[in-house]
Design a protein around this nucleic acid. Structure first.
Lengths: 353, 353
DNA sequence: CTGAAAGCGCTTACAG
DNA sequence: CTGAAAGCGCTTACAG
């Protein structure tokens, strides 16, 4: 049997020869095009199986005028939320024969804008950007026409495709859980009380409102960045300034929550007996720390899958080609930081390194 | 100016035309081949700059008979050690125009062996496997000839290329640090006392030996997997069985250390005042938890870079083509779990999500 | 519903 | 040191 000259692997031609059809027909079958006689299709598939044929993606992409590469832009891959997200994006992309070019911006605004303009070391077919600093203006200014999907807290109306959980509902759920546990003085670390557009702030406000509690600005703290250090600082400041400590605390991210817990700890407060804490993101550590962290868990697989579908749609001009804002599911994971140590068992049953 | 028919991007031909040379010459310059007249090279580079030329990797790989893809095989990407490693491998691969196909085995032995045999959804040019369960026999049985580099604790002599830190020296360093802090009853969680080949066990043994301390088998605990849960269980068992608790504890991984700390905590022991703890890996969480974790930090960038170099060498039949076992640097990061809370400040200065 | 042929943008012997 | 030409393995109008 004739084979790939350089690699010894079967080629489309080999399959065609065995099946007794032309290359075009094999191509049609492999790419799932219509109008192939059922019997022909079967013969082709049998031949594919027989020789173990796998398409050469370089050749395919070259012929199609595509690179077969999409870029995923994140602040820093090493951070748990983004590595977990990247894992799912890579997985869903692989299922489509795409590779993912990971690109880190380091939270740099200019780097994020450059990414929007498609400035990558190689040509890409699509772009997924997970970041918070972009403005609507940045999007309007964009000249590059590479298909784009935005992830992250904020949507941009019809300026760009966007996938996220319903952050308002998720925050409300988190705060309602604290209310259910009997908390009445609930602090919020990491949202801007003056930003009416901040979805996590709105969820917090709504939950307290529904419970008939008044907002206490002394219990809300802005932070410079979603870091543990900032969470710790903001919580320490809060404790120093309010007479009576809060009995519940909602942090914008798990990492901020870990910092907040550290501050509570150093102030001699017990979690959750003195202060119950809820985070956001469900990073792997959330279940490994003591106390393990109650948090909002977004469906990352759904985020990745939907983002990839949106890219595909833009490439083919299909249904999802027009910018849309879509929500994916989330759920609250209840752990020790709101129920008490020992009440919920440690969950991490998988070996880890 | 003529351009890529389908994408509008400049091609090699365009550069050649502008520079007034043949495609071959441009190719020589771009690929850094010898014997191009300096003035010709300059003209070509100027033309490359002028049009912003970037090679089409699909075309290059097709012509070269390569896929431009290497596979990275890990148990689970989401686990911090592996995501951090993957980040570095992706980075070093990108620098060479390679893409990384991430492949998860879920700690399944059969999946690991299948990976060794090159069973991937697409053709790959090289294989990096980070896992612990492979045996020398698995390696000898291997029929696939794809260039391979192994990562992880164990080397395999001349059976395969291998990159790692010196695990014996690293463990010794960890335990010596505990000795320096005055610990005399040092527990080891996660090594097999009966496995003389276990490098982390050997480092532990050597350090105690040098200090003139005798080994106490009651202080050594095997675990089923490197999970927090197992670390917690083993530590709880240890505390229940020894009369006097240890004053120091060395865990095979950070995640195991987090579990151990949880057990100590629940037993009413204070870290580090009652028991000082050292982990291994320096996962991002190590610096975020309370107390932050003293640990061994392997140079992951060096691991990734060396692994890529070894793959390149095998592909080109160069110097590193013969299987070698190479070490990369590590260092001890001293944090609160051995020095006390507040003694070392929280380090995470970067915003995280 | 299927075939024959051109073309995607590179690299690489082969010549000079 | 450089050029002209074939070839990598696909896809895709174009014909039938």
């Amino acid at each position: 049997m004739a084979q790939d000259q350089k690699t010894g692997r079967p080629r489309l031609t080999d399959v065609a020869e065995i099946a007794g059809v032309s290359m075009k027909t094999v191509s049609n079958v492999i790419n799932g095009y219509q109008h192939v006689a059922p019997r022909t299709r079967e013969r082709v598939l049998a031949a594919v199986d027989e020789v173990g044929y796998r398409p050469n993606l370089s050749a395919r992409n070259l012929a199609r005028g595509r690179s077969g590469v999409i870029a995923l832009v994140v602040p820093r891959l090493e951070m748990p939320y983004f590595s977990a997200l990247a894992g799912r994006v890579i997985e869903r992309a692989q299922a489509r024969g795409w590779f993912v070019l990971i690109h880190e911006t380091g939270w740099d605004r200019a780097a994020e804008r450059a990414a929007l303009e498609g400035h990558f070391p190689q040509r890409i077919d699509g772009l997924i950007v997970s970041t918070q600093r972009l403005s609507a203006e940045d999007l309007r200014m964009r000249t590059d026409r590479t298909p784009l999907v935005l992830l992250g807290e904020h949507g941009y109306g019809d300026l760009a495709h966007h996938v996220a959980i319903d952050n308002v509902a998720a925050s409300r759920t988190a705060v309602e859980h604290l209310l259910d546990r009997g908390c009445r003085r609930i602090a919020m670390i990491g949202a801007d009380p003056d930003d009416g557009d901040d979805p996590r702030m709105r969820g917090y406000t709504e939950a307290l409102g529904h419970a008939g509690l008044r907002l206490d600005r002394n219990l809300m703290r802005r932070i410079e960045s979603n870091s543990g250090e900032e969470g710790e600082r903001a919580t320490r400041d809060l404790l120093a300034q309010v007479g009576e400590p809060p009995d519940g605390l909602f942090a914008v991210t798990d990492w901020v929550a870990l910092g907040a817990i550290r501050a509570l700890h150093l102030a001699g407060l017990h979690v959750p007996d003195d202060v119950a804490v809820v985070g956001f993101d469900d990073i792997p550590y959330a279940r490994a720390v003591t106390p393990s962290l109650t948090t909002i868990s977004p469906d990352r697989t759904a985020i990745a899958e939907l983002a990839l579908q949106m890219l595909e749609a833009q490439l083919s001009g299909g249904e999802l080609a027009e910018p849309v804002d879509q929500h994916v599911p989330f759920h609250l994971v209840v752990r020790e930081s709101t129920t008490g140590i020992g009440a919920a068992p440690a969950e991490d049953q998988e070996p880890v390194a």
